[in-house]
Structures are given as C-alpha cells and as structure tokens.
Nucleic acid binder design. Structure first.
Length: 431
DNA sequence: TGTACTGTATACCCTTCCCG
DNA sequence: CGGGAAGGGTATACAGTACA
C-alpha cells in the first residue's frame, strides 16, 4: 500500500458521538506498516476527564490556570522527553489507550506539509507553541487529575458529557405572544367583573399560569382574553369590509370585553399593523383547542426565558403560559429538581450568559435543549420527586431551604461529582 | 407528481423599558 | 439600579402556487 500511515486519522464514534475517539498511527513510516503503533484517544461517557484535548491542542484549555492554582504542579516537573512516556514495552503492544504521542522526529517533520494531520503531529512549530505549550503529561499526572479535577472548565466538560441532552427526551414549547399584555391579561377580580357584566365573556376568557417574581417554585394564576385571529376562526365579524361594522358586531357579541379592550385600541392597532386580516381585539393565535396547543393541556414544567437564575415551576392545571416563558410538558418532578438545583444554576451561569456587560442568563430553547440531564434510576426519580412534592405542597415552609440542600446533594450524586467539584459549585466559581 | 419558488405566520432571540 | 417582563426585528418554517 502506498499510503503514508502517519497521514491517517481514524475517527470512531456512534451516531451520538458517545464514545468518541481519534486513532492514529504512531512511529509510522511510509512503507513500513509493521512498525506503526495504533494509538487511540477516546472520550467516553463515564470517563470524561482525559487530557487529550490539551495534548493535541483541541480548543479547550484553561490548563495554565490550573497549574497556577495547583500548588507545586509546575511545567518544570513534568517530563520533558517523550521517551519517558513511550516505553519499549508499549511499542510492542499494538493497541494503547490514553497515552501522549511522541513528538515527530526531525526528518519526518521535514517531509510534512501544512495540511498534515494535526493529531498525529504534535506541537513543534513556533506558531503552535504560541497557542499552547507543548509539554507532554505523564500518566501519573493524568491519573491524579482525573480523580480530583478542580478547574471549572473541566467540570463544565464533565457535566456536558453526563446523561443526555434535555432535548433528547423532552420537547420545549414557547408561550403565547400577545400584542399588549396589559390589555389581554386580567386578574381574578377583573374576570369576575367582566362575567358579571356579560356572562358571554367567560367564553373567551381562559386561565393562564405565570411565575411569581423572585420565587423559585411558586406560580400564580391569572386569566387571558383569548379571541383567536380571524385567520384561524370564522367569527361573525370576520372579513367584514368595514372595520367599524366589525367592531360593532364584536361589541354586540362581547360587550364587556369590548368595553375593556377599547381602552387599549390605539396601542393594539399600532402593534397589530402588518397582520391585515386581524382586528385589534384579536390575538395572533390559533383557536385554543387541545389539538392546537396540547402542551397547555397537560402537566408541565415552565420557566422564564431570561433572568439571573433558573426559576422553574410546575403546573398541573390546564392553563396557558405567555411569551417569554417556555414549558416542558412532563410530570417528571425529578427534572424540575435538576433544573432548580445549584448544579444546574452553575451550569447555566457558565453556558447561558449572553453578553459580558450584563449578568442576565438566556434560557433559550437551544441552550436548554443542549443541557445535560443526568440519567436517573426509578428510585432516584422517586426520591427527588418526593422532595420536590414537599416544596410544592408547602412552598412557604421554613424547611424549604433544607429540602433544597438535600435536592442539591442528590443532584450532585446524579452527576457523580467529587467533593472538590461540589466545592467549586458551592463557591460559585465559574469558568 | 415532484420540485422550485414565494409570501406569510410564527417562533426565536435580543433589546428596551418598567417596576420594585 | 438591577432584574425581569414585554416589545420588536428577523430568521425560519410552512402553506400555497407555478411549472416541468
């Protein structure tokens, strides 16, 4: 075969990239396949802390930081010759995992071109050294660090490789867009007034559920005037040539609602410009039916789109949620436990921050879908659900902080965190 | 019948601004 | 003043249409 084995990199993965591995031939010379040693650099689900990203200049790297903080661990004490890594015995074995590659010897490097395999070509050029130091790492060091990683970037990496992304198991739905919240969202008292004025009003008033400001688990109920768009529902006023005539018919059908919305006529008309077929009293929404909005008709976890912390809540009522909230239809309270845990909060601060100047986190659909949710056994699910139930049943109990701490502890267990990693999260040290 | 194109509604995400 | 709810621009999905 006339292929230079040193130029081959094999990428091995299943369709979920778990495990994920690079393989390449070490000691490979053109025309001498027998001398080539196949080396494998792998990421697996359970053993995520492997130094290969550093050794091979993959983009991760807060390693320098780690050295500063890790007393006594210094580049100088690390072996600086490749021979201390690759022993003759190892060369005899054809398969070797998790070892550092040898630097390319001088004459072989001269034959290489710029486009050559990065992985099989350890850092020799000056430009590469400027990006990342080429110091090889001993096995011993790797083993020690894999037991107690204390660098936030490594913890983040570990979390990212735990469990499965949220989007694999759950679907996230966004809330209803309103042209003007003040106009369409009403409280219990206003609802009673409107229905007392005209009993028909109840036909277009539907419950919604919102989060309570500043509170993690609690929700508040409210009501929404839901008159779906004429594009989706044929009303008596739909598609009238004369808008004032349509308005008159609307006022006849729902006099109380009409009187309420007239106060917001100007603002609703200005914001509704562009959607020609609609009148100011209509929502830009389909009919509220189970088949149109199945997510609202089942138990759901919901959370606001932004904020400086995740504040997820749970609702079993058949109520809608508004825009700037997302909901996940599920009755799995162990997911709620994870979302409201300190661990997830730490992950969110590390991942979801949108701009440097503001502390706000953006729990966008994409961000959330990618979030790693640890696998839970049935027992673990039950235990977490029980804890969450305790809080939901009595959110103002003085015991809530204790229960939250216990939930945090259980979540740390789910993600198999070490004491050092837990300390990082408790201290709020982000990457 | 399949494909390309087009217009529109919707959802997403960022920015603004209000309220505690 | 900061947090967070709401507004608004825009990318995207999708339905409808034309045409091969």
């Amino acid at each position: 075969i006339n292929i230079n084995p040193a130029k081959i990199t094999i990428i091995c993965a299943n369709r979920y990239f778990r495990p994920f591995a690079f393989a390449y031939f070490n000691n490979a010379e053109p025309g001498n396949w027998h001398a080539a040693v196949l080396k494998i650099l792998a990421w697996t689900q359970d053993n995520t802390y492997i130094q290969t990203s550093y050794e091979h200049e993959l983009p991760i790297g807060s390693f320098a930081e780690f050295r500063d903080e890790d007393n006594g661990v210094d580049e100088n004490v690390l072996p600086d010759t490749p021979d201390s890594v690759d022993t003759p015995e190892e060369t005899e074995t054809s398969l070797e995992t998790f070892t550092t590659p040898q630097p390319v010897n001088q004459d072989r490097q001269q034959t290489r071109t710029e486009g050559d395999n990065l992985l099989a070509t350890p850092q020799n050029s000056e430009s590469q050294q400027a990006i990342s130091p080429p110091t090889p790492i001993s096995h011993e060091k790797i083993t020690n660090r894999s037991i107690v990683p204390v660098v936030p970037a490594d913890l983040l990496h570990k979390l990212q490789n735990t469990g499965a992304p949220l989007g694999h198991h759950w679907k996230i739905h966004s809330g209803i867009t309103l042209k003007c919240v003040k106009a369409f969202v009403i409280d219990e008292r206003k609802r009673e007034d409107l229905i007392r004025e005209d009993a028909n009003s109840s036909r277009v008033i539907t419950p919604i559920v919102r989060r309570l400001r500043k509170k993690k688990w609690e929700v508040e109920g409210a009501y929404l005037i839901w008159i779906s768009s004429s594009l989706h529902k044929q009303w008596s006023w739909s598609y009238m040539e004369d808008e004032s005539e349509a308005e008159r018919i609307f006022a006849q059908m729902y006099p109380a609602i009409s009187r309420h919305l007239i106060d917001y006529k100007d603002i609703l008309k200005s914001r509704g410009a562009g959607s020609k077929a609609q009148y100011y009293w209509e929502l830009c929404a389909r009919e509220l039916k189970r088949e149109n909005y199945p997510e609202f008709y089942q138990p759901k976890i919901f959370y606001p789109f932004n904020g400086n912390a995740m504040r997820a809540a749970y609702s079993t009522s058949e109520a809608c949620i508004l825009k700037s909230s997302y909901c996940i239809p599920t009755d799995d309270l162990s997911l709620l436990a994870i979302l409201n845990s300190k661990l997830f909060g730490w992950y969110a601060r590390a991942q979801f921050r949108n701009s440097a100047k503001r502390s706000a986190l953006f729990f966008t659909k994409k961000n959330m879908e990618k979030s790693p949710i640890a696998f839970r056994s049935e027992d673990q699910k039950m235990e977490l659900s029980y804890m969450v139930d305790l809080i939901l049943n009595n959110p103002n109990s003085p015991e809530v902080p204790d229960i939250e701490r216990e939930i945090d502890r259980l979540v740390y267990e789910l993600y198999k965190l070490t004491d050092a990693e837990i300390a990082l999260i408790e201290k709020g040290i982000n990457p």
